[in-house]
């Protein structure tokens, strides 16, 4: 039993749950809840994206597009066509799932940065369409989205949302770890990421990469839908190129191929702009500097570097 608890997978999940459960004690008002919820939403998207970047070795420059597609599918279907939010969310998942599969299948057979380019194109096309079709999407000024309801129960306000997003975060971390630990995932890691070696031992690496891409896109879509209902207001910026870049940055800053790294990356990049808001015109300079310096001195990202240092330190002491 004790051994099970100290197993990094279960132990980590327990600690994460504990933090989520205890954090409200340190949140004095709704604004702090709002930041926490946004951290959670970003974290779930980034945990998904980390699967792709960290384990499939592919970059996506279009996850903002999937997030936006989810958000707008939910927003439009509930507000304009009166669909129930859950059905709209699932429709978004289906659309994004199919779209990402269609794109990924032929492209992931190739090696190189082709997925990055394809997702760049896809993401930008999605954001252009959302921005242009203003009769449906409200155009660049954005659109309002109804609150999330399920069986007559309305999810509204920061505190209920905090618990919903918190629970989803734990579930998605658990899911991500399971996917990573699946036989195919293990095989890929066992051969130290060498695709050729993995293929030689009979692992369908392309299929596995496509799966990771689709899963990460669906994570983004679901969170886009929920974000739309939570925030109540969405703009094409959610689907934009810079949102995509922001998400990739969270993965890399926290540490690639580390699920908890993805979490830390999401926390930092969500909180940082709030902390820097007092610097006014110097905000960009400081933000850029922090990003650069962190990665220059911790090229593996925060969590992997710090855990490594910690291990060294402990090893040296004993």
């Amino acid at each position: 039993m004790l051994a099970k608890l100290t197993h990094p997978r279960i132990g980590g999940l327990l600690i994460l749950s504990l933090i989520i459960a205890l954090l409200p004690l340190a949140l004095p008002n709704n604004y702090y809840y709002d930041v926490a919820i946004k951290i959670g939403i970003n974290a779930i998207v980034v945990v998904g994206l980390n699967l792709l970047i960290g384990y499939a070795g592919q970059i996506s420059l279009g996850h903002g597009g999937f997030f936006g597609l989810g958000a707008y599918t939910s927003g439009i279907l509930t507000a304009v066509y009166g669909w129930p939010p859950l059905l709209a969310l699932l429709t978004g998942v289906a659309v994004v799932g199919v779209l990402s599969f269609i794109v990924a299948r032929p492209i992931l057979r190739l090696t190189g940065h082709y997925l990055a380019m394809a997702t760049l194109g896809l993401g930008i096309i999605i954001s252009i369409v959302i921005s242009n079709e203003d009769w449906l999407t409200g155009g660049p000024d954005g659109m309002y989205v109804e609150p999330f309801t399920l069986l007559g129960w309305e999810l509204y306000g920061e505190k209920p949302w905090y618990w919903v997003i918190g629970a989803l975060l734990v579930i998605s971390v658990w899911m991500a770890m399971n996917i990573v630990d699946s036989p195919a995932g293990r095989a890929l890691r066992a051969v130290h990421g060498s695709e050729v070696a993995a293929q030689v031992v009979g692992v369908d690496t392309t299929g596995y990469k496509v799966l990771l891409f689709v899963v990460s896109a669906v994570f983004a879509s679901v969170m886009g839908s929920l974000f739309a209902h939570y925030s109540g207001f969405i703009t094409p910026a959610q689907a934009g190129f810079f949102h995509s870049i922001e998400l990739v940055t969270m993965v890399v800053l926290g540490g690639m191929a580390s699920t908890y790294g993805a979490l830390v990356g999401a926390v930092l990049l969500t909180v940082l702009p709030q902390l820097l808001s007092g610097f006014e015109d110097f905000e960009m300079v400081i933000f850029g500097l922090i990003l650069m310096l962190t990665l220059i001195f911790m090229p593996k990202g925060l969590v992997p570097t710090l855990t490594h240092k910690l291990k060294d330190w402990r090893g040296g002491r004993s």
């Binding site: 800053l253 850029g288 990003l291 650069m292």
Partner: peptide
């Protein structure tokens, strides 16, 4: 990502 940081800076 470092070049992205540099561009923002």
């Amino acid at each position: 990502i470092i070049t992205i940081g540099a561009s923002i800076f």
